[in-house]
Design a protein around this nucleic acid. Structure first.
Length: 470
RNA sequence: GGUCCCAUCGUCUAGCGGUCUAGGAUAUCGGCCUCUCACGCCGAAGACACGGGUUCGAUUCCCGUUGGGACUACCA
């Protein structure tokens, strides 16, 4: 392999946002280019003017940036390349490799349906193929593709794929409105941009022979192909909106770390022995097409969550705090103290698989609490008032409020009343956090600080007293 | 319908003819740890779609069946 010449590309169509299937295609192209010190090109395929939007283009670019998939060239826009396409059309027309077709679409559609009903192949019948018609209203340009022979190519992940040219019809290159079709624009661009490796979803394998025919008509070299197995929804059908969170940005909003997503996407279809966790650099170092599998797979959300949790656990607190602040703000926290967020993060990273979970789990540090119903009923019981009052007075007298000091205070307290920690920890937890589930009670108290602990415990005690009276 | 592609635990996968009583991860279940919940650790259960070949020997190679997917547009 000539390492100097490797050029890959990612050509999203802005008719939708970037979903995880597209992201994985982008990732594999990017990894392949980076691994071989090649170039990675970004091209926006907006030839479908009716469905392409600027917003989608922006979302796609934002998604790629968030994932850290940077490109060396582009973004190119197909909508700005009509001159190039026109030149190529001219070339094909003048060399007799393409022709004008005046058949009207309704007629064609009718013939297609007829052919289907007869059990025949619904392909273009070649009416205008040899008529040598000129340009005219409603005319399209079609490729004059070979009637016989086979088109064969060696796919880098699927092996040799061969299809009878008879299966292919004279596909439209330029529409009657002057715009260009996907298959044509792709070939022209890949060729002009010097793309050497086309790595894409295997929903394109059937397009490949058609595209090869266009390369041949153009007299341009054919790139290497690698068709990736598709990512399917849980119902084993093509991934779409109805499968829920498929857009890359939705994962960002969920509190997934970009490199965790990348890792999960890489493992869907690619493997390196038994290894599950890869840094981005490892991915670049180890990636190769030989280890890309050939069967379609379902994206496993649970595994992503687990992986994300692992990354969260090993991320440093300060960085996590910065990432967490926007999520806390979203949940209504304001005037956040970064140091306190950092301390809170330290107590929650082991119990959070996403930043959203972490934000929710740490809310009691930053906002007023309310008691959860079950927690209230089970633990804020009036008979505990005296015990908690004694504890409160010990806590008021505490000289320090770090975990070590608190453990000492509790140890003495427990000894004095001959009780287990469990007896007092749960009611205290509810008084401090409103919930029965939280980080370790000493951690919580240290991060919360003596003042808040005393305030909340006092409030809890008077609340319990209130119950006694009713 | 036609063409093309695919087929190992629920899911993601390792396996490139003997090393497979099929390995890892995740999810599930049990245990340990323990102030709750997690984390961590230990353990359990769980798969080669089916049928023919080829071979001394098939999860691995070939064919067929079944099942799934994609494509079959003046969408990409």
């Amino acid at each position: 392999m000539n390492k100097q010449n490797i050029v890959t590309r990612f050509p999203p169509s802005p008719t939708g946002t970037l979903h995880i299937g597209g992201a994985r295609t982008a990732l594999f192209n990017w990894l392949f280019a980076r691994h071989h010190n090649g170039a990675f090109v970004l091209r926006i395929e907006d030839t479908d003017q009716a469905r392409s939007t600027k917003e989608n283009t922006e979302i796609i670019i934002e998604s790629l940036k968030w994932l850290g998939l940077d490109w060396d060239e582009g973004p190119y826009f197909q909508s700005q390349r009509t001159e190039i396409y026109n030149e190529c059309i001219e070339k094909l027309l003048s060399s007799g490799k393409a022709y004008y077709c005046h058949c009207n679409p309704e007629e064609l559609e009718r013939k297609r349906i007829e052919a289907k009903e007869l059990g025949l192949k619904p392909k273009y019948d070649g009416t205008c193929r040899n008529l040598d018609l000129g340009k005219g209203p409603g005319a399209v340009v079609r490729l004059k593709s070979p009637l016989t022979g086979r088109t064969i190519f060696k796919d880098l992940v699927k092996g040799v794929i061969s299809i009878d040219n008879d299966e292919l019809d004279d596909l439209i290159l330029q529409r009657s409105d002057g715009s260009f079709t996907y298959n044509f624009a792709v070939v022209v661009d890949d060729s002009k941009m010097g793309i050497t490796y086309v790595i894409r979803g295997d929903d394109h394998v059937n397009n490949t022979p058609r595209q090869i025919l266009i390369y041949q008509a153009l007299g341009e070299p054919i790139p290497q192909y690698a068709h990736l197995p598709m990512i399917l929804g849980p119902d084993r059908t093509r991934l779409s909106k109805r499968h829920g969170a498929t857009s890359v940005l939705a994962y960002k909003e969920m509190g997934i770390l970009p490199y965790a997503l990348l890792n999960a996407l890489a493992r869907l279809g690619w493997s390196h022995g038994d290894q599950e966790k890869f840094s981005v650099q490892e991915l670049i170092d180890l990636f190769s097409l030989e280890h890309v599998g050939s069967s379609a797979g379902i994206f496993n959300m649970e595994k992503l969550l687990d992986l994300n949790g692992k990354y969260i656990r090993e991320e440093d607190d300060a960085h996590l705090a910065d990432l967490l602040i926007p999520f806390l703000t979203n949940l209504g926290c304001s005037d956040l103290n970064r140091e306190k967020v950092k301390a809170a993060v330290g107590t929650l990273k082991k119990r959070s698989n996403t930043l959203v979970e972490m934000a929710q789990g740490s809310l009691f540090y930053f906002k007023e609490i309310t008691y959860e119903k079950q927690a209230d009923e089970n633990f804020l019981r009036p008979e505990l008032v005296e015990l908690l009052e004694n504890l409160l007075s010990d806590l008021k007298g505490a000289r320090g409020f770090d975990q070590k000091e608190l453990e000492k205070i509790f140890s003495a307290f427990l000894d004095k009343y001959q009780i287990k920690l469990g007896k007092v920890a749960q009611p205290l937890r509810v008084a401090l956090t409103g919930k029965t589930v939280s980080p370790g009670i000493f951690e919580v108290m240290e991060v919360m600080g003596q003042e808040t602990v005393i305030t909340r415990l006092s409030h809890g005690i008077s609340y319990m007293k209130g119950k006694k009276n009713t």
